[in-house]
């Protein structure tokens, strides 16, 4: 299967581990990814918080590149996913916006490129049966709280990802890998996202309530698919300890890293060494499932 893969800026910086593990999993499953040439930033949160037309145009210039490739766009970063989907929605439903964006780009774009999340193509295109067949290892009953956050699921009429209040795509992958996808209530709460530097006090409070709920639900680790969620939940656990006195030691692992480990890919190749809270204990559950 062939797709245009949009890495996004975090792939080269704070979410190198998400990028490495996504690419490794794709390779192991025979998915062919081609990056759009000279791709640029999708605009992410700051562009839409400052200027909507800029936000739509920064996303659209990349969508136009993918249109020329004649492929669907696959994204592994929740923020890029959201911005691309919103740009497509606005441009295809609002002729005035289409005109503004086309003038900014110097070329018309109709908003028609299909944008998919990596988790979506695994469930919808590859399918759980084929995914299971490719597995060499099992999660060995590891209890995982899947955390989807905001940008994959909201707003639902634009994102169109799974169920916006109780998504289960990541849970289905975890169960397929022999883990236990926990039913817990904070799957789509907000971690504070881009407020991480400007209002870290709020990010600490919001992240704590999410991690505490995961812990109390029996989670041994959390699975994420958004670079902003990953870094907030992972990096702020010391601050949470200082502010609230509770130490969680909750590993915050990308879903692609969990998948990679069950496809027999080495921990270094999946960037597991980049996680701040050690995933060692959680990863000790992983065992070979190949019958000898």
């Amino acid at each position: 299967m062939k797709y245009a893969y949009f890495p996004g800026c975090s792939a080269e910086s704070t979410a190198r581990d998400l990028y490495l593990s996504t690419m490794a999993v794709a390779r192991a499953l025979g998915i062919e990814f081609t990056e759009p040439e000279a791709w640029s930033c999708c605009g992410t949160t700051m562009a839409h918080q400052v200027d909507h037309d800029l936000s739509l145009s920064l996303a659209a210039v990349n969508l136009l590149k993918v249109k020329d490739m004649g492929l669907d766009m696959v994204v592994s970063c929740a923020s890029c996913y959201s911005r691309m989907k919103i740009a497509n929605h606005e441009i295809s439903t609002n002729p005035k916006k289409r005109e503004i964006v086309s003038a900014a780009l110097g070329r018309d774009y109709d908003g028609a490129v299909k944008v998919r999340h990596f988790v979506e193509i695994l469930i919808e295109d590859i399918g759980l049966d084929a995914f299971k067949k490719a597995l060499t290892h099992s999660l060995g009953g590891l209890k995982v709280a899947s955390y989807y956050g905001c940008l994959m699921v909201r707003p639902p009429e634009v994102a169109g990802f799974d169920d916006p209040e109780n998504p289960v795509y990541m849970d289905r992958l975890i169960n397929a890998m022999g883990g236990v996808g926990l039913d817990w209530p904070h799957k789509v709460e907000c971690c504070g996202g881009s407020l991480t530097l400007t209002r870290s006090d709020l990010v600490v409070k919001l992240s704590e309530s999410i991690i505490a709920m995961a812990k109390d639900s029996g989670a041994e680790c959390m699975a994420v698919a958004c670079p902003m969620c990953q870094i907030n939940l992972d990096m702020r656990q010391d601050d949470i300890f200082k502010a609230a006195g509770r130490r969680y030691d909750m590993p915050i692992i990308y879903i692609s890293q969990l998948m990679g480990s069950c496809l027999g890919i080495s921990e270094d190749a999946l960037g597991l060494n980049k996680l701040i809270v050690s995933p060692k204990e959680a990863m000790n559950h992983v065992r070979s499932s190949v019958r000898s």
Partner: peptide, 11 residues
């Protein structure tokens, strides 16, 4: 100035 743009309101 502290809205995190999570869009729970709209959803």
């Amino acid at each position: 100035w502290v809205c995190s743009s999570c869009a729970t309101c709209f959803s």
